[in-house]
Design a protein around this nucleic acid. Structure first.
Length: 758
DNA sequence: CGCAGGCACCACGTG
DNA sequence: GGTGCCTGCG
């Protein structure tokens, strides 16, 4: 193979890059932005760039690469290692949260946190908020944990301190309008309580680091000197706070500004948590001499998939113009499954998987079912089980959110850091040991009053319900665990706690299928701890010798479900949300639940640019597919045990798929539609309860003709009587009695329904 | 103080 | 369909 003229003779690892990719890799000095379309070799560029830096003599310890997921970080490290060997481990590559947590543990004393501060997950944080709201005597129905935490998170991502928040009339006014006038107080109290507990939530890992860097010159100098090259993956997903930290480290007088940001505005799907494309725009102003590279060749997908992706994303106005193209022009057409019910959708998707496996010899691991919300996974699981397919569900209730795991973790956390009230509360009476709510309330209110942790109240000489045997039994047991923290390794101590706390016993005691699964989970976690103890972790040239429970906890608190057991990667079909599928690819992809109010989500309707973000999400979804893409929707779906009717997603209208059957919507003006798939010849759906109506003589009436009292004809439900019409003019809903349908009445959205007035 | 049963509310997405 | 809170009884 002929080497590219620009490649140094020794750099064989750079072979096989296209022109733009190569330029981006070789451009090592100064600021660059790589706009990378889906499947355009983004990770390849990032990793080879790092490898190239090291080969060119840059000290790997001076490279900082930030990603959003642990998986991306791991993959990056693995691929660098393949090129340059063990030195890859010296690169600081990890998620924003894990890297920043690592730095914060070193610098914690500057902001009066213990170096082994606990990290509260979302559930912990919500529960702290719930208690604050109760203590303040506010309505927990209005001040819900989720809403408050969301607001706190937004404030932090804009770097607004509780004080700044309270002093800003615009914010407090907005809170009053939102019926949350005491929000600022909750925010302030929340931060105080977390500090008292030596705890940080996910946002704090960024928020506190920002202030450490801002307020301590020697710290910011230290890290500016420590790192010489910065790489940021998925830059479009960064929020203001993250970008501010990056700027603190990279942009200063005399800085070489060696920063490489990689991203794709078309794949920005985290606006809901504060990510802003503004960062990409600001980036161009903040760093002069910025060079931008656009990776537009897609190496992943076939022509029809790439074509559809371009069509769909074209409906978004605001975007950096780029057109993705592929050399693999030939390919199977996109298929569409139209189901009457969510259950039928599940069955037909799994049927199609069976067919594809037979026809194309696909392995399970080459197939993914994607959905907008995790709750959609259940039906697919049901049919996959029935067909005996191995599958794995990612996301949803993750391993670390399971009750038994959280309970055990709460024991561990309390042993390591007893001032952490959150964990203590979880276990003080679990398993039941006769410490009831009233006793706990006494301790808690005394602790709040005296500004002490509950543990210090329990062990101090303060009055309360002291001398109670149940309480002393508990503190003595915990103290034994705490004493052994120094001399037992993580696995020994964890096993001891699991047995002596009585937790394992009550799980076994239930002796049901569920409790067996719980015991399994506990054992799986213990296995994980054992692995941690037995395997050497090399980081920054040093083998981590500290195998204490505390160290293990620190390493585990930023992991998610997706990070588990990648060693035991099996031949399973993947089920996950579209969000978690970002960055992945599969030979065959099913994008399901393509219905209005579901995908796009109803929550995006009244958010500015909300539909555009959903459309980017859809774009991400379809571009995961290499060869086979199947879309599906259902006309009706159960939600909270109630049947809801839905209309096909507007996104289906934005790509050229022919679906001329009875459920199709009126064609949009000015849009041509070609038949692209032989599989979608006009055909009657195989719906058992459908009522035959002669379609030839059917001419739908315009929706404003349909009024209460009208007699109407529907292709599927037959003749009916309109009982009521309600809703806004452009969103009218009719309740119609269809005697033949077998149901008393149906609610139909007139915007989409095809009804003929008789 | 513990437990069982009823019921309200629910869930968009992530580290 | 599941969870977590409330209530009332033992």
């Amino acid at each position: 193979m002929q080497l590219h003229p620009e490649i140094p003779a020794t750099a064989d690892y750079l072979e096989g890059l296209n022109d733009v990719q190569l330029k981006a890799v070789l451009h090592t000095d100064g600021p660059i932005l790589v706009v990378a379309g889906p499947g355009s070799g983004k990770t390849k560029v990032l990793t080879l760039k790092i490898a190239h830096l090291i080969r060119s003599g840059v000290n790997p310890r001076k490279i900082l690469a930030l990603t959003f997921t642990n998986k991306a970080a791991r993959e990056m490290k693995g691929r660098i290692e393949k090129v340059i060997g063990h030195d890859a481990n010296l690169v600081w590559a990890g998620t924003f949260h894990s890297i920043f947590a690592k730095i914060l543990r070193v610098e914690a004393s500057r902001i009066d946190f213990p170096p082994n501060f606990v990290i509260y997950d979302t559930d912990d944080a919500k529960s702290v908020i719930g208690k604050i709201v109760k203590d303040m005597g506010l309505d927990t129905k209005i001040y819900t944990g989720g809403a408050i935490l969301g607001r706190i998170s937004t404030a932090k991502s804009q770097i607004i301190t509780p004080e700044a928040y309270a002093n800003n009339p615009a914010f407090t006014m907005q809170d009053r309008q939102a019926n949350l006038p005491f929000f600022a107080d909750i925010y302030r109290t929340y931060m105080i309580r977390l500090k008292k507990a030596g705890a940080m939530d996910f946002d704090d890992l960024l928020y506190h680091l920002y202030f450490v860097l801002r307020d301590h010159d020697e710290v910011v100098m230290k890290y500016r000197n420590k790192f010489s090259h910065f790489l940021v993956d998925e830059f479009q997903d960064t929020n203001f706070l993250q970008y501010s930290i990056i700027k603190k480290l990279v942009k200063y007088i005399g800085s070489p500004n060696n920063i490489c940001a990689v991203g794709d505005d078309a794949q920005s799907i985290y606006a809901f948590r504060g990510a802003t494309i503004q960062n990409i725009l600001d980036f161009e102003h903040d760093f002069e001499n910025l060079t931008t590279y656009k990776l537009e060749q897609n190496y992943r997908s076939t022509g029809p998939i790439v074509k559809a992706a371009n069509e769909v994303i074209g409906y978004n106005r605001k975007q950096i113009r780029k057109v993705i193209w592929t050399q693999k022009q030939e390919g199977d057409e996109i298929q569409l499954i139209k189901a009457m019910t969510d259950s039928e959708e599940g069955k037909r998707v799994v049927d199609m998987i069976l067919e594809q496996k037979n026809r194309h010899h696909l392995r399970n691991s080459e197939i993914a079912i994607l959905y907008r919300t995790n709750s959609q996974s259940r039906i697919f699981e049901e049919f996959l089980r029935r067909y005996n397919f191995a599958y794995r569900v990612y996301g949803g209730t993750s391993f670390y959110q399971r009750k038994e795991i959280k309970d055990l973790l709460a024991y561990f956390k309390t042993v390591v850091n007893p001032s952490n009230d959150e964990s203590l509360l979880r276990i003080i009476n679990y398993p039941r040991r006769g410490i009831g709510d009233s006793t706990i309330d006494q301790i808690r209110s005394y602790a709040v009053e005296q500004e002490l942790s509950m543990w210090s109240v329990l062990t101090g000489d303060a009055l309360v319900s002291k001398g109670k045997k149940s309480l002393t039994d508990f503190t003595q047991m915990m103290e034994i665990f705490m004493k052994r923290e120094k001399d037992l390794n993580a696995f020994e101590l964890a096993s001891m706690i699991t047995r002596q706390s009585g937790l394992l016993e009550i799980l076994k005691g239930e002796n049901t299928m569920e409790s067996l699964a719980r015991v399994e989970n506990v054992n799986a976690m213990l296995d994980g701890i054992k692995e941690f103890v037995e395997n050497d972790v090399v980081e920054d040239e040093v083998i981590t010798v500290d195998k204490s429970l505390s160290t293990w906890l620190q390493s585990v608190s930023l992991l998610t479900d997706a990070d588990q057991s990648q060693a035991t990667e099996q031949e399973t079909i993947t089920l996950m949300s579209v969000h978690s599928a970002k960055g992945l690819e599969f030979k065959s992809v099913f994008v399901t639940g393509l219905e209005e109010k579901l995908f796009p989500s109803w929550m995006s309707y009244d958010v500015p640019d909300g539909i555009d973000e959903e459309r980017r999400l859809f774009y991400v979804a379809i571009t995961r597919a290499e060869s086979y893409l199947t879309l599906s929707y259902a006309n009706s779906r159960y939600k909270f045990g109630k049947l809801n009717y839905s209309d096909p997603s507007r996104f289906l209208d934005e790509m050229t798929i022919d679906r001329p059957d009875i459920m199709s919507r009126p064609q949009l003006p000015g849009q041509s539609r070609s038949t692209i798939s032989g599989l979608f010849k006009p055909q009657r759906l195989a719906v058992p309860n459908s009522i035959a109506v002669d379609g030839a003589n059917f001419t739908p009436s315009s929706s404003d003709k349909i009024l209460a009292g009208s007699r109407v004809l529907h292709l599927k439900f037959g003749e009916g009587l309109v009982k009521t019409v309600e809703g806004a003019t452009n969103n009218r809903i009719a309740t119609i009695e269809f005697p033949q349908s077998g149901e008393p009445e149906k609610r139909i959205m007139l915007k989409f329904a095809k009804l003929q007035v008789l």
